[in-house]
Design a protein around this nucleic acid. Structure first.
Length: 789
DNA sequence: GCCTTGAAGTTACCG
DNA sequence: ACCGGTAACTTCAAGGCG
């Protein structure tokens, strides 16, 4: 027997000779790739019973007999904080759990079946405190290695692994990025018909471009399998690989009778939870999932995301129209360009992995989902897995998912801003307001006291406005969970202060505290989500009610101090920066209200219109913040955003709105002269539902229908880029066309872009200064129409 | 039948 | 499949006028 330290990369299970075995794929301290097998674990679930004795035990045992029941064990557990009579039902085979669950549910004294939907390997990790993307120590015995397994050693665990320090660095991981190009002469490539023509693979040092000869990809697929096997990556990354590359490769492989044996167990990738493909023994990460969370990037193409993250600048790489890939392939002159394009794609993908994996690794170990699942899982699922882990530690049963109706409740307060330019404004905001409210007032489903229940007043916190009551003691589930998270984050931030920001340790811990913050902040939203296991409307409702109270009291006190409250939203107040008074305000909130606030930023100048949630400000270092305005929205043409940004800059930095008018006029002249590139006129909008379920023919819907007609695949979730042209009727939508079908500026309805894009975006700022449309369009034909009225 | 007006539908933002 | 609050656009139908 020996001790093994390993970092857990992937986990799965199989049933061998009727015995389930957990397989933990990882990297050990010497950099060897290992599998640790545990055959001692058995699946189980709980039944909540109204009664438990010899008779019930016999009945249940009989009902479950066909499913290999091993034991029935009454246990002390709680559900939503209340002790319940529960029986732990242990089975021999994880695959029989669903059937056994149904059977158990039919037994008369069984009130509920719980935790039967926790996947077997997740169950194993939760129960043993095992964390993916983290180090463990385990007593092992070396075992025979099945010959198709691509690892250095296989071990049998003598007992379950134990987690080591969470701050320890991950081992050096081998990462491979891949990207495929398909023949697409007939539009969207169809794996039934169109071969894969290029597969690019990068291991960070080298890029290999595998190509198909004569449009036959059987050999190409075999080469890909061989290359992956040679690189033997721990992490395989792609861009949209779960939705495109993997399913496409698998289908081509099947057509060509090639086994896509890229897993460490010698098998093929397999569809798995959250729409991701599992590549056993490796982490298969789709970076598109990460990109979806970068809201600053509106059109989430690989080149845009790589550009934004500073991985590869758009103007320093080869870009070709994806629809013309086949043409570049067919033309020997152009094929080298296509190859460079494929190379840039795969290099960008690798670069993206370098930027994002450190965060992914930390998120994975905090919420407890394997690295390849954590990006693919929704925010709700991430929070939920974090909660499931904690529930186990507290002896709380995991509630079942239940179908519920949708309920609304009141949210945060947004103040009407004071319009105009304000100098020297401090933004004061609450640190993690909602998590801290839940901690302070013990807001949780298990501490909630229903109206029917009588308790003495001093035992409960009563939420303002809504009157929901929560027991002060004992600490509720959410409180315990959030306190632990915030405390961990505090500790890490303390440690960060002592580290060199350029060091790898710093990077790891920085990403870790960021991941913790993300989960803590999402927990409030989770509790108000009707799909949540720990959903309780009153919990969410009380949290926002306390939030409103806090912000109101803060504003009141600020005014009492003589501060000018200019604006506020949810957990922030904007006041004139009088350091003494601001200091007093902060002390008041900390001492009287018991919450932490800080000066988040100070604006040299900040400008508001009458609208909430939209403003712009000049910071002391000369940077400009734009919030909510057209310039930061993805559904305005680039030209309008550019104009607004520049107008804001002129107004804030030079204080001369009329100078901005001159600038806007200049841009309009350029547009009229046909000097504005077509790309700046594209308007992008998401297709949020199926095309035929739209009630209104909005411009992007009309454009999408044209795409469909032209033979393109149109799917929910796509961003549709369109340009408004002259051709068509009165309705804007009748003049919308997919952007790439518009070939010349002459087709463009420049009047639309002037009157409905550029001018409104500029006037959003300028109208406060008395500037009107005719001042911008002055002297032009359009203005005379106005004068007429 | 034409024009105005406001509601409804839609998207993307803020915190 | 995390929440509610908000602005702003386009379409569409109702209402007023004649």
């Amino acid at each position: 027997m020996s001790k093994l330290e390993f970092w857990l990369l992937d986990i799965n299970y199989d049933v061998v000779g009727g015995v389930p075995e957990i397989r933990m794929w990882g990297v050990d301290a010497q950099g060897r790739r290992v599998v640790v097998i545990d055959r001692s674990f058995r699946p189980y679930f709980y039944v909540v019973v109204s009664d438990w004795g010899e008779k019930q035990s016999e009945t249940l045992r009989r009902a479950l007999a066909p499913y290999g029941v091993i034991s029935l064990e009454p246990v002390e557990k709680r559900l939503f904080g209340r002790p319940v009579k529960a029986v732990k039902v242990t089975l021999s085979n994880p695959r029989l759990v669903p059937k056994a669950r149904e059977s158990a549910a039919r037994v008369s004294f069984v009130q509920d079946v719980l935790e039967a939907d926790i996947r077997f390997y997740m169950r194993y990790m939760v129960d043993n405190g095992i964390l993916p993307s983290a180090w463990h120590t385990v007593d092992v015995e070396e075992a025979d290695k099945p010959k198709q397994w691509a690892v250095d050693a296989v071990y049998l665990a003598k007992s379950p692994p134990k987690p080591l320090s969470e701050d320890r660095q991950p081992p050096p991981l081998r990462v491979a990025a891949f990207d495929i190009e398909c023949y697409n002469r007939y539009g969207e490539p169809d794996p039934e018909r169109d071969p894969v023509i290029i597969i690019g693979v990068s291991d960070g040092a080298d890029v290999k471009l595998l190509t198909a000869e004569d449009k036959s990809d059987a050999r190409l697929l075999r080469e890909f399998v061989a290359l992956i096997s040679r690189i033997d990556p721990d992490v395989i990354v792609g861009y949209n690989s779960n939705r495109f590359d993997w399913p496409y490769l698998l289908e081509r492989a099947s057509k060509n009778h090639v086994k896509l044996a890229v897993t460490r167990a010698g098998g093929q990738p397999a569809p798995s939870v959250y729409g991701h493909y599992s590549v056993t023994g490796r982490a298969n990460v789709d970076l598109y999932d990460y990109a979806e969370e970068i809201y600053e990037v509106k059109v989430k193409s690989l080149e845009n995301v790589a550009d934004y993250l500073g991985v590869m600048k758009k103007d320093e790489r080869v870009l070709i129209d994806p629809n013309l890939i086949y043409a570049y392939w067919d033309d020997p002159q152009k094929r080298p360009t296509l190859l460079r394009y494929a190379e840039d794609d795969v290099k960008s993908t690798y670069g993206l992995a370098e930027k994002t994996l450190p965060f992914g690794i930390q998120l994975s170990s905090i919420v407890g989902l394997p690295l390849d699942q954590v990006f693919a899982a929704s925010v709700g699922n991430r929070v939920e897995w974090h909660l499931i882990r904690q529930a186990y530690l507290y002896g709380e049963l995991v509630p079942n998912r239940v179908e519920r109706g949708y309920e609304t409740y009141k949210g945060a307060i947004v103040l009407k801003p004071k319009p105009g330019v304000h100098q020297n404004v401090a933004v004061i905001d609450f640190s993690s307001m909602y998590p801290n409210i839940m901690i302070r007032y013990n807001v949780s489903p298990d501490t909630y006291v229903p109206p029917t229940e009588e308790v003495s007043e001093d035992e409960v916190w009563v939420a303002p406005e809504v009157g929901h009551r929560f027991r002060k003691h004992p600490p509720g589930f959410y409180k315990k969970v959030l306190e632990r998270l915030l405390e961990a984050r505090r500790r890490i931030r303390e440690k960060l202060k002592e580290l060199d920001p350029e060091s790898p340790e710093y990077r790891i811990l920085y990403e870790r505290q960021r991941a913790i913050k993300v989960i803590a902040n999402a927990t409030y939203g989770y509790c108000g989500w009707s799909g949540a296991r720990w959903y309780k409307r009153e919990v969410a409702e009380a949290t926002t009610a306390w939030g409103r109270m806090l912000i109101r009291r803060t504003i009141e006190y600020a005014r009492k101090l003589g501060l000018n409250v200019i604006y506020g939203d949810t957990d922030s107040v904007f006041v004139n920066y009088d350091p003494d008074k601001v200091e007093k305000l902060i002390r008041y909130v900390e001492e009287e209200l018991g919450f932490e606030v800080k000066v988040d930023k100070v604006y040299k100048k900040v400008f508001f219109t009458e609208a909430k949630k939209r403003y712009c400000g000049l910071l002391e270092d000369g940077r400009i913040d734009v919030v909510g305005l057209e310039a930061v929205r993805g559904d305005w043409a680039e030209i309008s955003k550019e104009v607004q940004e520049k107008v804001i800059e002129i107004v804030l930095k030079e204080g001369d709105p009329w100078k901005a008018v001159e600038y806007v006029k200049k841009v309009i002249d350029e547009l009229n002269a046909g000097k504005v590139p077509l790309e700046k006129l594209i308007i992008w909008k998401t297709l949020t539902k199926e095309l035929d379920s739209y009630e209104v023919d909005a411009p992007h819907v009309v454009a999408a229908k044209q795409l469909l007609e032209a033979g393109y695949r149109v799917r929910k979730g796509m961003k549709i880029g369109y340009i408004i042209t002259k051709r068509g009727g009165e309705k804007v939508s009748s003049r919308a066309r997919p952007f790439f079908l518009v070939k010349s500026i002459d087709e463009v309805d420049t009047d639309y872009y002037i009157r409905r894009q550029i001018v409104p975006a500029a006037l959003r700022i300028l109208s406060y200064f008395g500037i009107k449309e005719e001042h911008i369009l002055g002297g032009k034909k359009q203005a005379s129409l106005f004068d007429f009225f």
